[in-house]
């Protein structure tokens, strides 16, 4: 009984400490993000390479997923809408559900699965190989050189890829809408535009950027917590990915609360 209570207490303390460390690290990174002196030729190169691996290389697969997903979601949803006679809600479905919820979620999952895990392992390996020590020896700040470019890449990739996903789904929506309802381009545009709100778009873009920030920040922080042993790498990658998914859920919930307040 006492052991169980101790376990709960330990878990709570560990969680709050981890949360505090993550937030402290996040504040540190944000301060550097806003400092122009952070940016130099070396960090630009890291950013370009990271962005290439995160967004450009994944683009064909990503567009393929967007097309398949868009066709399925649009096909099913439009059929239901048609059966219920709720054509007026078509725009709200597309803008309020697909663009603001589904697109960021699918994108964040894809990026987290591909890039967050890679960043987590990469930082852990650098720590074990003493490459981070080397940076310190040569007066190279790892936050400026390694972390900030990766985090900017995460934020930008999320915003761009999620927006592309939305555009692809909306474009497919036009085809499906004309096939199911026989609507014209203008009618479809009007329906979608009526449901579109600039504030919602801003909130979605901000949500995407927040997703991107945390799905790169958390793997970096967990990667840094690796010990000098190779065996610690899988452990920190595992922990990092679990925390990445938790952060996705938390951000999703918070964004929903903000939208519906």
């Amino acid at each position: 009984m006492i052991a169980a209570i101790e376990n709960i207490g330990r878990f709570t303390l560990d969680t709050s400490l981890s949360l505090r460390n993550t937030l402290t690290f996040a504040i540190q990174v944000i301060i550097r993000l806003l400092n122009l002196r952070t940016y130099n030729s070396a960090s630009r190169m890291v950013f370009i390479n990271q962005f290439y691996f995160t967004s450009v290389q994944i683009l064909p697969l990503f567009l393929f997923v967007a097309v398949i997903f868009g066709s399925l979601v649009n096909g099913m949803a439009f059929q239901v809408i048609k059966n219920l006679g709720l054509y007026d809600y078509l725009g709200r479905l597309l803008m309020g559900f697909v663009v603001t919820e589904v697109a960021p979620f699918v994108t964040v999952l894809l990026i987290a699965l591909r890039s967050s895990s890679a960043i987590n392992a990469e930082i852990a390996v650098m720590k074990v190989n003493r490459e981070l020590n080397m940076l310190d020896t040569f007066n190279i700040d790892p936050i400026n050189y390694l972390f900030v470019p990766r985090i900017i890449n995460g934020m930008l990739s999320m915003v761009l890829l999620s927006s592309l996903f939305s555009l692809v789904v909306l474009a497919i929506g036009l085809f499906v809408s004309s096939a199911v309802f026989g609507t014209s381009v203008d009618a479809y545009n009007d329906t979608v535009l009526q449901a579109a709100s600039l504030l919602d778009i801003v909130i979605v873009l901000f949500k995407c950027a927040t997703f991107g920030f945390f799905i790169t920040l958390i793997p970096i922080r967990l990667g840094l917590s690796a010990s000098m042993e190779l065996t610690s790498i899988p452990v920190v990658v595992l922990g990092g990915m679990v925390k990445v998914f938790l952060s996705i859920v938390v951000i999703e919930v918070l964004s929903l609360i903000i939208r519906f307040i």
Binding site: F51, L59, L160, S163, L164, L167, L193
Partner: peptide, 23 residues
């Protein structure tokens, strides 16, 4: 790599800006 990254960022940003501008 620089070219591909630059091209992607420009095209995607233009698409997004055009969409938001249209709305």
């Amino acid at each position: 790599v620089e070219f591909k990254v630059g091209l992607f960022i420009i095209v995607a940003t233009l698409l997004i800006m055009a969409s938001i501008g249209y709305v």
